[in-house]
Simulated scan of single mutants.
Amino acid sequence: MVAARKRGGGMDWAMAGLEPAAFWAALAVTLFAGFVKGAVGFAMPLIMVSAFSAFLPPEMAVAGLILPTLVTNLFQATRQGLAAAWGSVKTYRRFLIGTVVFILISAPFLTVIPRVAYLLVLGVPVTAFAAAQLMGVPLALPLRHRARAEWGLGIVGGLFGGVSGIWGPPLLVYLLSIKAEKAEMVRVQGVVFLIGAVALLAAHLRTGVADGASLGFSAALVMPAMAGMMLGYRVQDRLDQARFRRWTQGLLVLTGLNLVRQAVM
């Protein structure tokens, strides 16, 4: 685990008392997570939290992903222009409201709710849904239920986002269900994740999880996150709609299985 100790030098603000090995491991994980995000538009917080849990305390793991998530999603949301981003805000406003409100509600319970509980409750249904999609089982939401589904999945995403920093899977479930095309999927993810990241930062400034030390560490992860995302964009731009959808489904299965693995172990 992590040992905190005093040390001199100009990197103290970023290392937040972490051992050098833990700090450099966090940078490497973030670089890879940024690459995956650039390629498929999501999974950066999932990868970071999953890997960080092996060598960081839960509070530091959640705090560390806040600023990289905020900055990378700002770029992702506006890659096709501010007008397109604002259009996504209006179209998916119900999901956004549900997510933001319930991130603020659930964040104070970060240190109260057993980690195994939310990992299982999120991981099992996400794995089942994505696996069914890969096998060709039609699970699309009827159009008459879209508004209800947006509210419901937005609330679920917010509840998990406040306590884990992860609110992407419910959004992916919704976008796959309505068969959103690649550019829209990536842009909407950027918009929802950006606004969610602002809410998460605000919530954890209140809880104390995000303080001067942990935000210094989080700031140090921004550059590797951005470098990885720029590399990932090269992969994304080469993927056609069908392959992009299957990559997304496959990664969602792995994500869900990893959440379950963490819970049972």
Rank of each mutant, 00 (worst) to 15 (best):
residue 2 V to L: 12
residue 2 V to E: 13
residue 5 R to W: 03
residue 11 M to S: 05
residue 19 E to C: 02
residue 19 E to V: 09
residue 25 A to S: 15
residue 32 F to H: 01
residue 32 F to D: 01
residue 37 K to P: 09
residue 41 G to T: 03
residue 45 P to D: 01
residue 56 L to V: 13
residue 57 P to E: 15
residue 61 A to N: 04
residue 64 G to W: 09
residue 64 G to D: 05
residue 65 L to W: 00
residue 71 V to I: 14
residue 73 N to V: 01
residue 74 L to V: 09
residue 78 T to I: 02
residue 78 T to E: 05
residue 82 L to P: 00
residue 85 A to V: 06
residue 88 S to F: 04
residue 99 T to L: 11
residue 102 F to D: 05
residue 103 I to H: 04
residue 107 A to Q: 13
residue 120 L to T: 01
residue 121 V to F: 11
residue 122 L to Q: 10
residue 122 L to F: 07
residue 127 T to K: 05
residue 127 T to H: 04
residue 129 F to M: 04
residue 131 A to Y: 14
residue 131 A to W: 14
residue 133 Q to W: 03
residue 141 L to Y: 10
residue 143 L to M: 11
residue 150 E to F: 02
residue 150 E to A: 14
residue 153 L to D: 03
residue 157 G to P: 01
residue 158 G to H: 02
residue 159 L to C: 07
residue 163 V to F: 07
residue 165 G to F: 07
residue 166 I to S: 10
residue 166 I to H: 01
residue 168 G to Y: 10
residue 169 P to V: 05
residue 173 V to D: 04
residue 173 V to F: 13
residue 181 E to F: 04
residue 181 E to N: 14
residue 183 A to T: 11
residue 200 L to P: 12
residue 203 A to R: 05
residue 205 L to E: 07
residue 207 T to F: 01
residue 208 G to Q: 07
residue 211 D to T: 06
residue 211 D to W: 01
residue 212 G to N: 09
residue 215 L to C: 12
residue 218 S to Y: 06
residue 230 M to Q: 14
residue 237 D to H: 14
residue 238 R to G: 05
residue 241 Q to M: 00
residue 241 Q to I: 05
residue 246 R to H: 08
residue 250 G to S: 13
residue 252 L to S: 14
residue 258 N to L: 12
residue 262 Q to N: 14
